[in-house]
Amino acid sequence: MDSQHCPLCGRSNQCSLANGRQDEPCRCFDVQIDPAALQRLTPEQRNQACLCPACAGAVKAAERREQN
C-alpha cells in the first residue's frame, strides 16, 4: 500500500512521516478522525496510511470549531 496517498480517494494524504519529514508529527495525531471514514476502510487498509484531510473529516471538524 502507498503510504503517501489516502486509501479512500487516492489523493495525497499530506502525511509528514510518509513524506520523509520525521522531525514533525503527522497532522493526524492532532485531529479527530470521523468514525464513519474509518468504517469505510477495509481491514487490509487500516493502520497502513493516513486519510487525506477531506476523507478524514478533519475539514468538517475544523469548520465546526470555527463556527463555535
Rank of each mutant, 00 (worst) to 15 (best):
A56M: 09
A18K: 08
A61N: 12
L38Y: 10
V59M: 00
Q48A: 02
C15N: 03
Q39K: 15
I33V: 14
D2E: 03
S12Q: 12
D30E: 15
Q22W: 14
C6R: 05
G57Q: 04
N19G: 14
A37H: 02
L17S: 05
N47D: 06
F29M: 15
V31H: 11
A37I: 03
D34I: 07
T42P: 08
C9P: 06
K60N: 03
A62I: 07
L17T: 02
L8T: 11
E24G: 12
C55R: 10
G20W: 04
P43Q: 08
H5N: 07
A58N: 07
F29P: 02
N19H: 15
C55M: 07
A36G: 11
M1W: 04
G20F: 05
L17K: 01
A37G: 00
C52N: 00
R65W: 09
D2C: 04
Q14Y: 11
D23K: 14
A36K: 13
D30K: 12
Q14M: 15
Q48M: 02
C26H: 03
Q39E: 15
R21F: 15
C52W: 02
A49E: 00
I33G: 12
M1E: 06
A62K: 09
V59W: 00
A61I: 14
T42V: 12
E24V: 14
G10I: 05
Q14A: 15
C9D: 13
E24P: 09
L41V: 07
R11C: 10
N47I: 01
M1H: 06
G57V: 00
E63R: 14
P43V: 03
V31K: 11
L51C: 05
R65P: 05
E44M: 03
R64I: 04
R46D: 01
N13C: 02
C9H: 07
G10E: 07
R40H: 09
N19D: 15
A37F: 01
C50P: 07
P53W: 01
D2M: 05
C50K: 04
S3L: 06
C26N: 04
L8V: 09
E44A: 04
A62S: 08
A58Q: 08
P25G: 04
D30F: 13
V31Y: 08
G57Y: 01
R64S: 10
S12F: 14
R40G: 09
R11A: 14
C6I: 01
A58F: 03
C50M: 04
Q48R: 05
C28P: 11
D34M: 08
V31A: 09
E66P: 06
Q67A: 15
D30H: 07
C55P: 02
P53Y: 01
R46K: 14
C28Q: 03
Q32P: 10
P25Q: 03
A61M: 13
S16H: 10
N13E: 00
P7D: 13
L8W: 10
A54N: 10
E24M: 15
Q22P: 07
S16K: 06
T42M: 10
P7Q: 13
C15V: 02
H5A: 13
L38P: 10
N68T: 12
A54D: 01
Q45I: 05
C15M: 04
F29C: 15
